[in-house]
């Protein structure tokens, strides 16, 4: 069972909408600078940056993006879990990319590509809360790509499992 709660952020929506209106993203825009510890850096083919060709996110910036909360079981945990995070589709829209896939790399250098076909509404999220709490490195945090596994069998495949990268800290749009 998967429950998805979308909490819209007007700013994000406005931004996203703006991005959508300018799909060619010929004009790069500057993002706000992260103030806290950088949890995620997005590089590659992106329109919006706040560093040299990269978009750096701290926890506050991520939390400012539109978030969803899903409830699902995972093969790595016991019992029903609640995850809250940014949908990949929203993140991609936010950074403004035409990329066909993203390359996600973890702290332990585990890396996996997630094609753009997966970035859909109701699809995988970049979770920053597990059961309402931030995740430490020991708990596969601070960022963990989570598919709503219970919502459809396709998300219960080894492909989906292998793309569910934890301890994520880098994304490259390619």
């Amino acid at each position: 069972m998967t429950t998805t709660t979308v909490t819209p952020s007007f700013l994000a929506l406005a931004l996203g909408g703006l991005m959508a209106l300018t799909p060619l993203s010929a004009r790069a825009s500057d993002l706000a600078q992260p103030t806290g510890e950088v949890l995620l850096s997005v590089t590659g083919d992106i329109a919006n940056t706040n560093a040299d060709g990269a978009a750096m996110f701290d926890r506050a910036m991520l939390e400012a993006l539109p978030s969803v909360t899903i409830q699902t079981q995972t093969i790595w945990t016991e019992g029903l879990q609640t995850f809250t995070g940014v949908q990949l589709v929203d993140l991609a829209a936010f950074v403004g990319t035409d990329a066909e896939s993203l390359r996600a790399t973890a702290v332990n250098d585990y890396a996996v590509s997630i094609p753009s076909e997966d970035w859909v509404d109701g699809g995988p999220i970049l979770a920053y809360l597990n059961n309402g709490a931030p995740m430490s490195l020991r708990d596969k945090g601070p960022l963990w790509v989570i598919y709503p596994y219970d919502s459809k069998p396709a998300y219960q495949s080894e492909v989906a499992y292998s793309r569910s990268i934890w301890q994520l800290d880098r994304i490259e749009m390619e």
Partner: peptide, 14 residues
């Protein structure tokens, strides 16, 4: 932490 996380996964993963 990474090692710990791995072991925790082995310990608790379904």
């Amino acid at each position: 932490d990474i090692f710990y996380s791995r072991l925790a996964t082995l310990e608790s993963g379904a």
